[in-house]
Nucleic acid binder design. Structure first.
Lengths: 130, 130
DNA sequence: CTTGACCTTCCCATACTGGGAAACACCATC
DNA sequence: GATGGTGTTTCCCAGTATGGGAAGGTCAAG
């Protein structure tokens, strides 16, 4: 099948499929006319990639996950370790975003929100406390 | 003062100061020799930007915040609205990261993590449920 | 006058995705 | 066979925000 069909079947845009090929994440055989040609197995790989992206795995992680996936004799411990590392990274990012949100919300609570110019948010940004 | 001193005094790297100028966020007067020249007020602006970045405001928001800051007659309601919008965006991003982390952690919990190949994480990525 | 620290601009890189242009391939219809 | 529509190719550019590094100019101290 051509790239369009592979895209539709995998949920990965044709644009991204070409990109993944350019960065060496996947490969594609070419037809005599230059068109990329994909089989069901390729679509499965693309789906795998999409699911991993849905789980916010960075592409470099996905590269390793693909290698593990292809390795029939992989140890599940390897996969688990990657997953847990990734979970830790996600949670740390989530927590720091939430912390920023909390402190900004706190500032906003003390802002009148009227037509007067005084605003603790601006005061904070000015760095009153420095 | 030169860019290096302004950078040290504001906590914004010289690289970033030039970048902020390039995108029109700030301006700089030049000395005859071509060097950028900054005064204390400029450093205050840079500090303002840095604080806003610490609060994860995107640069486009900072552009507006700077305008509000410079506007002595600004309504605090404007600032508050921007802040609350930003809080909502941050929290939504934090929540979705956390949701991904949760589901991945759940998968990992059911992975033996031994030297056998079976692993529900890989199974999920394969899209068993599709 | 040399040396070293600082400054300038310009290009490249990160990670991921999309938009769009110009050219070519294919297929169906007239 | 000409035409048109759709698909595909490559290439360039865009964004977020930041940094690395090269090649060269400037200045102050020794």
């Amino acid at each position: 099948m051509n790239i369009g069909e592979a895209a539709a079947g995998s949920g990965v845009s044709a644009k991204m499929i070409r990109h993944y090929e350019a960065i060496g994440l996947i490969e594609a055989t070419r037809r005599p006319n230059g068109y990329r040609s994909y089989g069901p197995q390729d679509v499965a790989v693309l789906r795998f990639i999409r699911h991993a992206r849905d789980l916010a795995f960075p592409l470099e992680d996905i590269r390793r996950l693909l290698a593990l996936w292809r390795d029939r004799s992989r140890a599940s411990a390897d996969v688990k370790q990657m997953a847990l590392d990734h979970v830790a990274a996600l949670e740390s990012k989530a927590a720091s975003l939430q912390a920023v949100a909390d402190s900004l919300r706190h500032l906003a609570q003390h802002c009148n929100g009227d037509d007067r110019p005084d605003c603790p948010i601006i005061a904070e940004l000015e760095g009153i406390r420095e």
